[in-house]
Amino acid sequence: MSLAVTDLTYAFGAKTALDHVSFSVGKGEFCALLGPNGAGKSTLFNLLTRLYTTRGGRIEIAGHDMTRRPRQALARMGVVFQNQTLDLDLTVMQNLRYFAALQGISGAEATRRSEAAMDRLNIADRAKQKARDLNGGHRRRLELARALLHDPAVLLLDEPTVGLDAAARAALVAHVHDLAATQGLTVLWATHLTDEVRAQDRLVILHQGRILADGTAGEIAGDRSLQDTFLSLTGDRAA
């Protein structure tokens, strides 16, 4: 498995944010992590990216245990955070090269990878533009290009379409689906929007720190729309 979460538990004081969460995502699989606000998605992402650590449970990225081999696990992971993390005063190219350096990539190799990353996301013509001057859609594309620069095995995206218009949102959803299908990238896409999930996608529904459903989206939805299923699952439990 490219991404495996086993029995993960995390609490803020007395409040349990994640309660024995387990799921795994295989190579080339697009897994949507669907949950309403406050479901525990962000806590899960903070644990997956090692901004938090916990002794309750286990995380494995591309075969590397996050507790015992954190650096190896992080090196195999690309992340698009919910809040934008670009340096707005740097150009597109400088942002990519800065990230490359944080991954230990420098010189001609950093240039080559940065150019390839920009080509892949169709932002090569903006290489010298400051990130501040990009619109929301292009900023997200740049963040995705950056997350892929070091050829990760696992791509994590935390509500990446927040603030995007409909066209940019659809393009991003399509592009990441394509990456999983054609390049074998393992994707974990956190969202609270059901229209970003396709019927054949793997789906994990998280609510109040627990997993309510795990399977393909089509199976979980059954005869109903995914939206209805999601609302009835999370609504009933919340009541």
Partner: peptide, 9 residues
């Protein structure tokens, strides 16, 4: 966040 997720100590 970006800095702290770099694969370095």
């Amino acid at each position: 966040r970006l800095l702290l997720t770099a694969p370095l100590p």
